[in-house]
Amino acid sequence: MRLQPTITYNDDSLLAKAWVKGKVEEEGVQYLTCAVNLGGQSRRSQESVTIYSFPAPNLTLSQPEVSEWTTVNVECEAQAGAVVTLNGAPARPPGPRAQLQLNASAEDNGRSFFCSAALEVAEQVVHKHQTRELRVLYGPRLNERDCLGNWTWQEGSQQTLRCQAWGNPTPKLNCSRKEDGALLPIGDLRPVKREVAGTYQCRATSTCGEVTREVVINVIYHQNNMAIVIPVASVIILGTVGAAAYIYNYQRKIQKYELQKARKAQEEAAMKLSTPATPP
């Protein structure tokens, strides 16, 4: 095999470069000879070179996009003589093939599978890699961690309301108050106003389904003190006046009764004095 070098001159030296394009039948140890003729003299140097073919491993998923709880087969395969490793695969004797099987869940969405192949060439280990990603379709998620069901704030405070739905594809979230349909003020509340208080119904929908969640917002605020004092004072005054009137009427009734009783006694005494005595 004769090479076509590219020669570069530099003062009293020269550099020759050539690409070695080996064929399958030429794989293995080959010898390269460099010969230089100058001024009637010849110099020759020889080195060995190992020609090999080592493509990247073949990493395949039975389905790159699946619905939740679908069985997925992952397989990594390289050429004979190579040793492959596949992340997540069960331990097996070293070889050119590795595989694993999983029941896809929402947590597997976006999971990357990494396959590495190693081949020993001329007492050196050469590595090639391949990566694939799995997409898992699953319905909306709207749980306590991402959308708290009960919020209690002080009026005028600075708060942030968070409510986020998860899913693949990304669900659409709509939250409205049951009483009047007002939208849930997701985000910064600066400041909190009593008008946001109420019970909201949140609904997350996508092509994979829907889920609902109730969110309650409580706002603590101080009422006008005069608005409280005046009704209370009125009740106290009315109660006092009523009690005094009752006592006064009760005492008048007692006095009237005593007078009537004394008058009756006097009348009875007068009648006894005016009645003539019976003769013996």
Score class of each variant (00 low, 15 high):
Val126Met: 04
Glu65Arg: 09
Trp19Met: 12
Ala91Cys: 00
Lys261Leu: 14
Lys17Asp: 05
Ser13Asp: 06
His127Met: 08
Phe114Val: 11
Arg177His: 07
Arg252Asp: 07
Val72Ile: 05
Leu102Thr: 02
Ile237Pro: 00
Gly167Gln: 08
Asp11Arg: 14
Glu68Asp: 03
Gln223Val: 09
Thr275Tyr: 08
Thr152His: 09
Lys193Arg: 14
Leu38Tyr: 15
Thr275Phe: 09
Asn58Arg: 06
Thr33His: 10
Ala182Arg: 13
Met226Lys: 05
Thr33Met: 08
Glu267Gly: 02
Gly40Trp: 09
Ala270Cys: 05
Ile230Thr: 07
Tyr221His: 11
Arg44Lys: 14
Asn10Met: 09
Thr131Lys: 13
Ala265Val: 05
Pro96Asp: 09
Ala117Glu: 04
Tyr138Trp: 10
Val36Thr: 07
Asp188Phe: 02
Tyr257Glu: 14
Trp166Lys: 10
Thr207Arg: 11
Val72Met: 05
Gly88Ala: 03
Gly209Gln: 01
Ala18Ser: 13
Glu26Gly: 05
Ala117Pro: 05
Glu195Met: 02
Ser176Ile: 14
Arg162His: 12
Pro169Ile: 10
Pro169Val: 11
Ala80Asn: 09
Pro94Ser: 06
Gln159Met: 08
Thr131His: 05
Glu75His: 03
Ser53Leu: 11
Ala16Pro: 07
His129Met: 08
Thr160Val: 15
Val29Thr: 11
Thr212Asp: 07
Ser112Lys: 15
Arg190Pro: 00
Ser53Thr: 12
Ala269Arg: 14
Arg194Tyr: 01
Glu258Lys: 15
Lys253Leu: 11
Thr60Gln: 12
Tyr9Thr: 11
Ala244Met: 13
Trp151Asp: 04
Leu86Met: 03
Lys264Trp: 02
Gln130Thr: 12
Val126Pro: 00
Arg145Tyr: 11
Thr33Phe: 02
Thr85Gln: 06
Arg44Met: 12
Ser62Trp: 07
Lys178Cys: 00
Tyr9Met: 09
Asn37Tyr: 10
Pro276Ser: 08
Glu120Leu: 07
Ser48Val: 01
Leu161Lys: 11
Ala165Lys: 06
Thr205Phe: 00
Cys202His: 01
Val72Gln: 01
Arg141Val: 15
Asp108Trp: 02
Ser112Asn: 10
Glu258Arg: 14
Pro231Arg: 04
Leu238Met: 13
Leu142Asp: 04
Ile237Asn: 04
Val219Phe: 07
